[in-house]
């Protein structure tokens, strides 16, 4: 049985002056799933998140969150969302506990209930003994945990995370993943943008890959890997002097080869018999295809400045 749709976008468009950040995208996010937005810088991920969060008006198209229209029902939508934006917006005028309490009050949660929720959040994110310190005294990882805890204070049904683990050490990243999976198991819908393919593959039930304001593909991570790069990838590490020779040799074998700069990749290889024997004197690695292969294949190697 398919869960009901909680967010649906139809031809959603965002234009700033002369830049089209989101160019007529459509998607449906279902209740209780973790849905990822991947894409290079400037792909339109954050603009999409901001429109969903009702802090950036829609230029064209339709966007419904739990049936509410973002152009009309902003307070209702914002009450249902917990948002962790990219900016570190902890309140340095208040201590850690007060940060949570004041944030709760913005959602009209006050008094005993607020206090209970705040201490639960501190407990969940292992910040109990920091309650009376200034956020300025916290490490980057602690700050991020507090930001996520703060976004959960009013028990939102949808959690929106814009690059939640960027810049975190592996320990903190795994702690955050653990908490997010825990929240998902409680039925919270999670929207996530990330540059970490491993994170997207680990957390997301479904995802879209965006580039230049458009959605390139949509699907479950494992399906995308299978359909775009295959189960197994052959990676040939090669320096630039021998690369053209290698590439022309591979073309003769009729294999799908892609130059990724530091290596040449072969997709859709099944079984060792297909690997040309003249590769013996190269550094060849066979490994499972992954989301990063899909991502780079779809969005190319060109750097994005924004």
């Amino acid at each position: 049985m398919q869960s009901p749709t909680v967010i649906s976008a139809r031809d959603l468009t965002k234009r700033y002056r002369d830049l089209t950040a989101v160019d007529g995208i459509s998607f449906d996010i279902r209740q209780g799933e973790c849905f990822g937005f991947l894409g290079p810088n400037g792909a339109g991920k954050t603009s999409t998140m901001k429109m969903i969060s009702c802090v950036s008006p829609v230029t064209a198209g339709e966007l419904l969150v739990q049936g509410w229209d973002v152009t009309r029902d902003q307070r209702a939508i914002k009450s249902a969302l917990g948002v962790v934006s990219q900016a570190d917006s902890l309140d340095s005028g208040l201590n850690v506990l007060q940060n949570l309490l004041s944030y709760g009050r913005y959602f009209n949660i006050d008094g005993e209930a607020a206090r209970r929720h705040a201490w639960e959040a501190l407990e969940l994110f292992q910040l109990r003994d920091k309650a009376y310190q200034s956020p300025d005294e916290l490490s980057g990882g602690m700050r991020r945990r507090l930001l996520i805890g703060r976004a959960l204070l009013h028990e939102p049904s949808i959690l929106v995370l814009d690059e939640p683990t960027t810049g975190l050490d592996p320990q903190t990243r795994h702690l955050v993943w653990d908490k997010l999976l825990h929240l998902k198991s409680q039925g919270i819908t999670i929207l996530l943008t990330t540059h970490y393919m491993e994170e997207a593959a680990y957390l997301c039930d479904r995802l879209v890959v965006m580039d230049r304001g458009r959605i390139l593909v949509e699907g479950a991570p494992s399906d995308l890997i299978l359909s775009h790069v295959g189960q197994e990838v052959v990676e040939i590490r090669v320096d630039w002097r021998r690369k053209s020779q290698l590439l022309s040799g591979l073309n003769g074998h009729g294999l799908e080869a892609e130059d990724r700069g530091d290596a040449v990749l072969l997709y859709g290889v099944n079984g060792s018999n297909q690997i040309p024997s003249d590769l013996d004197d190269y550094d060849v690695i066979r490994r499972p295809g992954n989301l990063e292969d899909v991502f780079l294949r779809l969005t190319g190697r060109e750097l994005r400045e924004s």
Binding site: K78, S89, Y106, F107, A151
Partner: peptide, 18 residues
């Protein structure tokens, strides 16, 4: 200072307040 240095308004915008 609250707006630019402490990012207070940015935080508040993601709550029901405007």
């Amino acid at each position: 200072l609250r707006m630019e240095t402490h990012h207070l308004y940015e935080a508040i915008l993601f709550t029901p307040l405007g």
